[in-house]
Simulated scan of single mutants.
Amino acid sequence: MSLPLIPPMLATSGTLPSAAQDARWAYETKQDGQRVVVYLPGDGSAVLRARSGEEISAAYPELLPLGGALGATPAVLDGEVLALDEQGRGDFQLLQSRMGLAHSPGRAARRAAEVPVHLVLFDVMHLGRHPLLALPYSRRRTRLEALGLDGPHWSTPAALVGHGAQALQATRERGLEGLVCKRLDSVYEPGVRSRAWIKIRNLRSEDVVVGGWLPGKGRLTGLPGAVLLGQRSEGRLRYVGGVGTGWSETEREQLAALLRAAATDVCPFDPVPPAPGAHWVVPRLVGEVRYSTRTRAGLLRQPSWSRLRPDLTPEESAADFPDGLV
C-alpha cells in the first residue's frame, strides 16, 4: 500500500498548563534523540524518515524488523530514536555516532552492534486504510496503545493524563530532558509547530569562569559573539564550551568592556581548546549559565548566559567532570 508522507507535528516551548486546565492535557517524557516518522506498508518492510523527510532506514538496521510487527496492517507512526546510557536515559552524544550513516549500511551495522538504539513510539497518524490526523490525541493514543508495539528495540511508553506538575518534577529528579504536554482534544497538524503541544526543557545552572571570547560578526562586530567558559578541576581551568546567547545589547557592551580590560596573550585553559581566532582573558570574571546536559567530555550542551557573578571568585567555579576528560 502507498502511504501518505506526513511531516511530524512539532511542539512549542512554553510552561505547564494551569491547574484548572491540567486534566485536559496528557504528559509525555521529552526524549533526547532523533525524531522519526515510521512507515509500515504492511509487506514486512519499514521506512524511517527524519524530520527533514530524508529516508534514514539504513542507519538503524535493528529497527527494521518493526516492519513485521503489525502483519499486513499498514501504519504511519511518530516516534524518537534514542541511544540509551547506563541509566536508561537518552544520550544524544551516543546517538550521534549512529546518525548520518543512512548511506553507509556496513558501518551502520557495525555501529548497531556497539551502540544499539531504541525507538520510542508516541503517536499514530494512519492505520489500515484510514487517516487518523483529524482524530483527537486521546483517540489516537488509544489506537496506538492497542497495537501493542513493544519489542526488542521499540516500545510505547504510557502517557500520563493530568498531574503535570508531578510529571515535570519526576523528569527533573531522574535527570531527563523535560516534558511534552499534549492537549487531549488536539488533532495532528503535520509540519506545524503547534500550541496544542508544549515542550518544557529542564535546564540546569552552574557557575563558570570566562577565559576568552570570539569576535562577533555583522551588527556584533567589535563585540563578543561568544565567550569561552571554563571550570576549575584538579588545579587547572578546564574548557567547558562557549556561549553566545542570553545578553541584552547593553549587557553585551558591558561585557565587552570587562573583557578588553582583562586581555592577555596567554590561554588560561589547560588543555588549550580548539578555538581559532579566540581572544584570551585573565580568568577572573565569573558568570552563571543555564544548560541542558553535559557531553561525556564535560562540555555544556545548549548553554545560555544568565548573569555575571561578581560575588564569586574563580576558585568557586569548581565542577565534577566525567571520567576520561583530559
Rank of each mutant, 00 (worst) to 15 (best):
L147E: 02
G68I: 00
D78R: 03
A146E: 07
G162A: 01
R140D: 05
R107Y: 01
L66G: 14
L147P: 03
A167E: 12
G88T: 06
Q87N: 13
P152Q: 15
H163I: 05
E86G: 10
G79P: 12
H153L: 08
R139V: 13
H126V: 04
L133W: 10
G90A: 13
S104E: 14
G164W: 00
G79F: 05
L121I: 04
G175R: 11
A134V: 00
R89L: 08
D91K: 02
A59W: 00
M125Q: 03
R141V: 01
L77D: 05
V81A: 06
L64A: 07
G148V: 04
A134I: 03
V81P: 08
G175I: 07
L135C: 02
L144G: 01
R140E: 03
L101H: 04
Y60C: 09
D123S: 02
G88V: 12
R172D: 05
A69G: 00
D78Q: 10
Q169A: 15
S138M: 03
R98I: 08
V124C: 05
A59Y: 02
A59M: 08
H153Q: 11
L127Q: 06
L149W: 02
V124Y: 02
R140N: 03
L127Y: 03
T73R: 07
S97Y: 11
H130S: 06
A170H: 12
H163G: 14
E145R: 14
S57Y: 01
D150N: 15
E114G: 10
M99V: 15
A134S: 13
A159L: 10
R139T: 14
S138R: 11
A72T: 14
L70E: 13
L121A: 04
V120K: 06
R111T: 12
P74Q: 01
L160G: 08
G68E: 07
L149T: 02
R139A: 15
L147K: 09
R129V: 06
L133S: 06
D78C: 09
H163A: 15
A165M: 13
V76H: 08
L132R: 04
G88K: 06
Q87S: 15
P74W: 09
V161W: 12
Q96Y: 09
